[in-house]
Simulated assay, not measured.
Amino acid sequence: MSTPTPKQRPANPSMLQHTLLVAEREVTTQVRSKAFIISTVVMLVLILAAIVVSSVFGDRFGSDPKVAVVPATAELVAGLDGIDPVDAADDAAARQLVEDEEVSAALLPDPDGDDNPLGVVVVAKESAPDTVVSALAVAPPVELLDEPTTSEGLRYVVALGFGLVFMFASLTFGSTIAQNTVQEKQSRIVEILLSAVPPRALLAGKVIGNSILAFGQTAAIAAVAVIGLVVTGQDDTLGLIGAPVAWFVLFFVVGFVLLAAMFAAAASLVSRTEDTGAVLTPVMYLVMIPYFLVIFFNSNETVLAVMSYVPFSAPVGMPVRLFLGTAAWWEPLLSLVILALSAWGVTAIGARIYERSVLRTGRRVKLREALRG
């Protein structure tokens, strides 16, 4: 009589499998949320609309004024910056173009030009066109010792964009991690989760899952911005920001891991949602400070240089420096290494805090107690 062979017990999942399982849970939960989908779509539409509107108004208000010229005055404005000449057969035709508002002004010979050094008169309909008069004014040539590489307006917009995207995405997904952590402690669901998943795997899964979501959203923003610039014909701007945007996405991924570990560790210290403000405020300050620094000091090379090597501000400071062309080729690599090492160290400390405080309910756990165990 044969004895039945005992059934083999299934192998325990590894740390990596536990982590990926939690990460998959975090991603699927957010992706299935209507609020997340709607907010993401609305944000992408607003970004695309902003690019299109800026292009339309830029073409409308940034183009040179049209000026009607006759054969006698055509050579005077040939190659002159700030004027778009429109040929007219004679004085009457040029005046008619002004009357019909097809041009801003007309440049005609002055019949009484004895006291007029230029020998021409500007004809307008209701008011003197200051742009045309300024373009015709005689001014000495200007020599700049340092030619500007980018305009003040574009530099401010790019700095604002990097700072705003970093702050918005970090606060959105960081707050999600913190909120889920506190809710799991408050509802005692974390006890069930930790009966099947180690604490470090639970923390790592939360960080990885939300990092994937943050990276996907940031990459979508970058893709929409590129599409908007291509569609609106702003290829020059795209050429300037293409490489800095790619570096920004890379820096953001590593930087968010650092911040996500801090959000989760800080939230694990409390057991009630109303207590999260006190523990999350320092982390939120670290997220918002780079935004304000890059807005107020986007023209200060010293401040930007310091920002590009501080882990919390490097995801904003270094891409801005790359856009301005003030960073050497090796600087983003060095900054990224510093950021990665910092993220590894902060994640290790955050895992220690999370592991020692996530099961402690009741009063708020002090940071010193969590570190000492």
Rank of each mutant, 00 (worst) to 15 (best):
L240V: 13
G228A: 04
M262A: 12
V249A: 13
W247C: 10
D236P: 10
L229Q: 02
A260P: 06
A261E: 01
F248P: 02
F248N: 04
A264V: 02
F263C: 02
A267G: 08
F252V: 06
A243Q: 15
V270A: 06
F251K: 09
D236S: 14
L229S: 00
L259M: 11
L258V: 05
A260H: 07
A261L: 04
V231E: 07
L258S: 06
V253K: 07
L250Y: 14
L269S: 07
D235K: 15
T232D: 10
V245M: 14
F251M: 08
A225E: 00
V253L: 12
A225L: 00
G228E: 02
A243L: 15
A261I: 03
V249F: 09
L250P: 07
L229F: 05
A225I: 00
F263G: 09
A225S: 01
A265C: 10
L238Q: 12
V270S: 03
V226N: 00
A261H: 10
V245W: 08
L269V: 02
L258G: 06
I241C: 12
L250I: 13
I241T: 12
L229P: 03
L259E: 01
F252C: 04
F256M: 04
A243H: 15
A261R: 02
A243T: 15
Q234R: 13
V257W: 07
L238E: 13
M262C: 01
V249K: 09
L269C: 08
D235E: 13
P244T: 14
I227A: 02
V254T: 03
A243R: 15
A265H: 05
A267H: 04
I227P: 00
T232V: 07
Q234W: 12
V226M: 00
L259N: 06
L269H: 04
A264L: 07
F263K: 11
D236G: 14
A264T: 05
F251R: 07
V257R: 04
L259W: 05
A246Y: 14
F252I: 04
V231Q: 03
L250E: 10
L238P: 12
V245P: 10
V270W: 06
D236N: 14
L238S: 15
A267R: 05
P244K: 12
A260D: 06
A243K: 15
A267I: 07
V226C: 00
M262N: 10
S268E: 08
L269I: 05
V253E: 04
V226W: 00
G242N: 15
D235T: 14
A246M: 12
P244I: 09
V231M: 05
G255M: 09
F256S: 03
Q234F: 11
L229C: 01
G228K: 03
A261Y: 03
T237M: 13
M262S: 05
G255R: 02
V257L: 09
A264S: 11
A243S: 15
T232Q: 12
Q234V: 08
A260V: 03
V270R: 04
D236K: 14
L238W: 12
G228T: 02
F248E: 07
L269R: 04
V226I: 00
